[in-house]
Simulated scan of single mutants.
Amino acid sequence: MSFTDTERVILANQYEILGKLSNEQAYLDLAENLKDGHAWIYDQQILVSPIFSKEQSDFVVSILELYDAIQDSFDALSDKGSLTPDRVKFPGFDGNNEGEYMRFFSALVKNQQFAHVKAHTNSHMQKISTYEGMLSKWESLGKGYMLSLEDIEAIFSR
């Protein structure tokens, strides 16, 4: 990561203040490395994730809207067929391969967005292609929010 001289001074001042307030030498050392321009050293300590794109954000929001519709529809069904509460729970994203999606989902919940959607935290398997297929099937069904048992089963079997 590259910083302008101005950005390095600002960050160095912030880390120096943090180091003095918390009495942590590591912050003071980082401030010194920023001031001295030791990019290799501060690049190892200041880790910033890439920007999560609008397309990625829209995808996560869409899949959560779908699971919201599935869960509301499931709750309203008198005959739930072979569906179970665990089956209609949002599986989440794979922490090893879809971590940025997992972090965005967690941020949404933390910010009270889709916090009511019942979900697992980590799917432990890659799910993006599965979700793409589910969204495509939901789209072909008219993207309704009140789904029949057959609609839900079709979305899951896509």
Rank of each mutant, 00 (worst) to 15 (best):
K127M: 15
I152G: 01
K137A: 13
S78V: 11
L34P: 03
S2W: 03
S57Y: 00
D68F: 11
S49R: 13
D94C: 15
L108K: 12
L28P: 01
M146N: 12
G92L: 07
Q113N: 13
S148Y: 01
E132S: 08
Q112D: 15
P91G: 05
A26N: 04
R8G: 07
N111D: 15
T130K: 05
M134P: 06
R103Y: 12
N13A: 14
F3I: 07
V48W: 02
N97D: 09
S136Y: 10
H116G: 00
S2H: 14
Q56W: 02
S140A: 14
M134C: 06
Y101I: 03
S57N: 07
Q56I: 04
W40Q: 05
I51C: 03
D94N: 15
A115F: 06
K54M: 14
P50K: 10
V117H: 09
F90G: 07
L108F: 03
D86E: 11
G142P: 11
G92A: 13
R87I: 14
S2P: 04
E132I: 01
T4G: 09
F104Q: 02
P85C: 02
G144S: 15
F104R: 15
K54I: 10
F156T: 01
F59M: 05
G92R: 08
N23R: 06
D36R: 14
Y101P: 08
F114D: 06
N97E: 05
L77G: 00
Q126Y: 13
E7Q: 14
L18D: 08
L141G: 15
S157H: 07
L11W: 09
Y27E: 11
D68N: 13
L11E: 02
F52D: 04
P50R: 12
T84F: 01
P85L: 07
E7W: 01
D94S: 15
V9M: 10
L149T: 00
F74H: 01
D72V: 07
E32A: 14
E65V: 00
L77I: 00
D29R: 10
I152Y: 05
R87S: 11
S140M: 12
A76M: 10
D29L: 08
F114V: 01
S123Y: 00
G99C: 09
S140K: 15
K35A: 05
